[in-house]
């Protein structure tokens, strides 16, 4: 039981797919122009993630190692097509109009294949479902938060509701792709700063998340004398 809760919770903050694993950056940047879009994309991805994690965890024992990646992709693509059809049939027209062309992109969303390969293929179906739920929730929350920030900064609205009624002209940078990069970058920087400070205060050595560390980067040392 404890393990299930741990698996579920780690996706939300400790191993947040967007802010820590830095996976699925394409939908993160492209789709969070409004809070509604962010939440919709997050929920659709969560559904795919849970379904594919479950199926892949069930079949991983009998899938030949050599062709596991194509098999996983087929499973994921099937779930994505199912989501696409269900959304077309039952989702509100405005949501499908906004997400429609991005749904097929969930197939190549690194989070889904990443969790299949790194988690579902090595754990039992129950744990895999909770991993999918946690990761999906983390993804949804991050995308919604980004959507709220970007939508509010662009037009003073949140979920289509004007918060500041005096807002008349749109500020376009946060709604565009470059603005998304800047906002995600600032959030990452703040998150890492807080983590590093907490680690230093506790007297531990701060280890940056893989891929975000300074070991292979020498920008800081340019212009300095070798010590």
């Amino acid at each position: 039981m404890k393990k299930i809760i741990e698996t579920f919770c780690k996706g939300i903050w400790k191993e947040n797919p967007v802010l820590v694993l830095l996976l699925g950056t394409c939908p993160t940047l492209a789709l969070t122009t409004s809070a509604t879009n962010g939440a919709g994309m997050g929920l659709a991805t969560t559904f795919v993630l849970v379904g594919s994690n479950f199926v892949i965890s069930c079949i991983s024992g009998i899938v030949p190692r050599k062709i596991r990646i194509p098999v996983y992709i087929v499973v994921i693509a099937t779930f994505v097509t199912v989501v696409d059809l269900l959304l077309q049939a039952y989702a509100p027209a405005s949501l499908y109009a906004a997400l429609g062309i991005f749904i097929p992109l969930i197939v190549v969303n690194c989070i889904v294949l990443g969790r299949a390969e790194a988690f579902a293929s090595k754990h039992n179906p129950l744990l895999s479902i909770f991993d999918g739920l946690g990761m999906g929730l983390g993804f949804t929350l991050t995308l919604t938060m980004l959507g709220i920030i970007r939508e509010f900064a662009t037009s003073g609205t949140v979920f289509g509701v004007k918060i500041i009624t005096a807002w008349t002209t749109d500020f376009l940078l946060p709604g565009s792709a470059p603005g998304a990069f800047i906002i995600v970058g600032v959030i990452l920087a703040v998150r890492n700063f807080l983590k590093a400070r907490a680690a230093v205060k506790a007297g531990r050595l701060y280890v940056p998340p893989a891929g975000l560390d300074c070991r292979h980067c020498n920008i800081c040392s340019i212009g300095k004398d070798d010590e």
């Binding site: 122009t33 409004s34 662009t154 037009s155 609205t157 289509g160 509701v161 004007k162 918060i163 009624t165 749109d170 376009l172 709604g175 565009s176």
Partner: peptide, 17 residues
């Protein structure tokens, strides 16, 4: 463009708080 060209094509009652 979302927030710019797209707004010109949109028909939506403006909701405020």
């Amino acid at each position: 463009t979302p927030g710019l060209g797209a707004e010109l094509c949109k028909r939506q009652f403006s909701r405020t708080i």
